Amino acid sequence: MKKRLLADIILLFVAFIWGATFVLVQQAISFLEPFTFNAVRFLFAAFLLLIWFILFNRDQVKKINKKLFISGLFIAACLFSGYALQTMGLLYTTSSKAGFITGLSVVLVPLLGFFILKQKPRAIAVIGSLVAVAGLFLLSFGDSFLLNKGDVLVLGCAIAFAMHIILTGKYTNDFPSMLLTITQITGVAIFSSIGAFIFEDWKVVFNQDIILQKDVLIALFVTAVLATAVAFFAQTKLQQYTTPTRVALIFAMEPVFAAITAYYWADERLSVFAIIGCLLIFMGMIFSELPTHKKKDKTLQNVKSA
């Protein structure tokens, strides 16, 4: 019981870190462009994970093979797409709205799982999805009923993260968790670096006036160390002490933390319609994860958001 409680508390802290990073990233990308920021973030995180692997998991080297790299790159492609769309979306929408829309990935998992893995979604998951979609409509359109480009980009991010959850659930039992994590984090770093090289002025990372900006340094440290390296490691290690449903519910708090931190740190305010939309999305997340008498969906054992 103590291990389970400790696991839940630490995972709740992970959800808080992910929620809080929306504001930090939004501030940082005013100095570093999205691909460049993610390249530095994931390269640093991959470096930290690699050091951890060398120190504590060297016995797993013999398990490295071609299938691991291919599977890891597939997962990395989804994770890269999610973070790229999320970071670009933050250029056009608010942190609080981005946090709630990203949280839709939890709701989208059973729906995408039906089309990709042929897993029939539970009725309660369908109800949760419909409630969340209604909330997304109110949140995205608000009282102006104008579609925000940033909202669309972040919705694409939610779909990509849902795909990441599904593929992680598919491959997680085939490889050691640390190796799979390092492979996908490194893959995201490579994809982001390529994007920065092609589409952005990546040389700004060598500009001390930019890279040493307080907002940039804080955002890179928190996202690379806490929100990526530590968070992935914590999720991998601690899920064995709790249940998939509890983990999904805990991670559903990420958009709530995003809205709270955006309120206090960025002075963001939501309209009445947007607040109702946020509540509906949160209710949809809860509905989609309510336990039933049916066999639990193992895909949700590896839930992930920003």
Rank of each mutant, 00 (worst) to 15 (best):
M1R: 10
M1D: 07
K2E: 14
R4C: 08
L5C: 05
A7C: 11
I9G: 01
A15I: 01
A15V: 05
F16G: 12
V23F: 11
V25Y: 04
R41I: 02
F42D: 09
L43G: 15
F44Q: 00
A45N: 04
I51N: 12
W52T: 10
R58P: 01
R58V: 12
I64G: 09
I64S: 00
K67H: 12
G72M: 08
G72I: 04
F74D: 08
A77M: 14
A77I: 15
A77S: 14
L79H: 07
F80G: 08
F80T: 05
S81Q: 08
Q86Y: 03
T87M: 08
L91W: 01
A98L: 03
F100E: 11
F100L: 09
T102N: 11
L104W: 00
L104I: 14
L108K: 01
V109M: 09
L111A: 12
I116T: 10
L117D: 14
Q119C: 02
K120G: 07
P121W: 10
I124N: 15
I124R: 12
S129N: 00
V131T: 09
A132K: 08
D151M: 13
L155M: 13
I159T: 10
M163S: 11
G169Q: 05
L179E: 09
L180V: 10
T181L: 13
I182P: 00
T186E: 07
T186I: 10
S193A: 15
E200W: 09
A224L: 04
A227P: 08
T228H: 06
T228C: 12
A229Q: 01
Q235I: 05
T236R: 08
T236L: 06
K237I: 15
T242Y: 00
T243H: 07
V247L: 14
A248D: 02
A248T: 10
A252S: 15
A258Y: 05
A259L: 04
Y264R: 02
Y264L: 14
D267G: 07
V272K: 13
F273G: 01
A274F: 08
G277R: 06
C278Q: 00
C278Y: 01
C278H: 03
I281T: 11
F282R: 05
G284E: 07
K296T: 15
T299F: 02
T299E: 03
L300C: 08
N302S: 07
V303L: 12
